[in-house]
C-alpha cells in the first residue's frame, strides 16, 4: 500500500510540474466561464417565458445542468491530455525498473498512477463546480442537484482517467496515448447514437454508452447502478493496464 501511495504522490507532483497541466486547467476554466456566462445570458432571454409559472425551471435546470453536460463532453477530449504521460512517460524516462525493483507489481503501479492522475482533474472539477455556485449570490440554486451532478461528473472523470492510464500503458508515445484515449472515450460517448437516432433507448448498447449513466445524476438522482458502471470502467481499465505492466516487467 505504501508503494502505491508513493507512486500516486509522485504522479500528482509530476502532473503539476508540467506546464501542459496548467495550460489545460487555465484553458478549461476560461472555457467554463464562457459557457456559464453564455448560459446565464440565454437564461435572461428565456426567463420572461416562464414568469408566473409555478413549475418554472430555475437557474439550476436551465444554466447549471446544461453547463455540466457540456463539461462532460469536453472531459472526453481534455482528460487524456492530463493522463497521457502517466505510464508511457515512465517507459521513456527509463524509470519503470525502479518501481519493479521495489516490488511494485502491475496492479499497484496502475492503481498508484490512477490515483495520482486524478490530481489535476480533481482541481479542475473543483474550479468548474465552484463557478456556478457563485450564481447563488443573486439567485436560489438547488445545491443538492448540483452536488449530485458534480458527483456524476467526478465519476466520469475517474473512469476517463482510468482509460487514460490504460492507453498510456499500451502506447509508445504520450501523443498516441492521448489520441487513443480520446478515440476510445468518443466511442464510449457515441456508442448508442445510432440506436438513439432510431428512438431505441434501452438494451446493451445503450447501457454500455457513457452519457446514459450521467442522465440520472444531471436530474439530481444518485443512481448506484451508474456509480457501479463507472467503477466497472475503472476496474476494467486498471486491470488491463496492470496486465500490460506485468508484460513490460517480463520483457524489460
Amino acid at each position: 500500500m505504501s508503494t502505491t501511495l508513493a507512486i500516486a504522490r509522485r504522479e500528482w507532483r509530476a502532473q503539476f510540474a508540467s506546464p501542459l497541466a496548467w495550460t489545460v486547467l487555465a484553458a478549461m476554466v476560461a472555457l467554463g466561464a464562457w459557457l456559464l456566462l453564455s448560459g446565464v445570458e440565454s437564461y435572461g432571454a428565456q426567463a420572461a417565458r416562464f414568469a408566473g409559472r409555478a413549475d418554472a425551471p430555475g437557474v439550476t435546470d436551465l444554466v447549471v445542468v446544461p453547463y455540466f453536460a457540456t463539461l462532460a463532453t469536453l472531459f472526453v477530449f481534455v482528460l487524456p491530455l492530463l493522463t497521457m504521460r502517466s505510464i508511457v512517460g515512465e517507459r521513456r524516462d527509463g524509470t519503470l525498473p525502479l518501481l519493479f525493483a521495489a516490488g511494485a507489481g502491475g496492479r499497484s503501479i496502475a492503481v498508484g498512477k490512477w490515483l495520482g492522475a486524478l490530481g489535476a482533474p480533481a482541481v479542475l472539477l473543483l474550479l468548474l463546480v465552484l463557478m456556478p455556485l457563485s450564481l447563488g449570490v443573486g439567485t436560489t440554486l438547488d445545491v443538492g442537484k448540483i452536488a449530485v451532478a458534480a458527483l456524476g461528473l467526478a465519476a466520469l472523470a475517474g473512469a476517463l482517467c482510468a482509460l487514460g492510464v490504460l492507453c498510456s500503458a499500451w502506447a509508445q508515445h504520450p501523443a498516441s496515448a492521448a489520441l487513443a484515449a480520446m478515440a476510445a472515450g468518443t466511442i464510449g460517448w457515441i456508442a448508442d447514437a445510432a440506436a438513439r437516432e432510431r428512438g431505441v433507448t434501452e438494451g446493451l448498447i445503450h447501457w454500455l454508452a457513457l452519457p446514459g449513466h450521467l442522465t440520472a445524476a444531471m436530474r439530481g438522482v444518485l443512481a448506484t447502478v451508474d456509480l457501479a458502471y463507472f467503477a466497472l470502467w475503472v476496474v476494467l481499465c486498471l486491470g488491463l493496464a496492470a496486465l500490460r505492466l506485468e508484460r513490460l516487467r517480463e520483457t524489460g
Binding site: 508503494t3 507512486i7 504522490r9 509522485r10 507532483r13 524516462d93 527509463g94 521495489a102
Partner: peptide, 22 residues
C-alpha cells in the same frame, strides 16, 4: 540507464526511492 525522474531533484528522487522501499 539510471532510473531518474527528470522533474525531481536528486534529493526528491532519493526520498521517492526511500518511500517506495517503505
Amino acid at each position: 540507464r539510471a532510473p531518474l525522474y527528470p522533474e525531481l531533484t536528486v534529493a526528491e528522487s532519493l526520498v521517492f526511492a526511500a518511500r517506495l522501499r517503505g
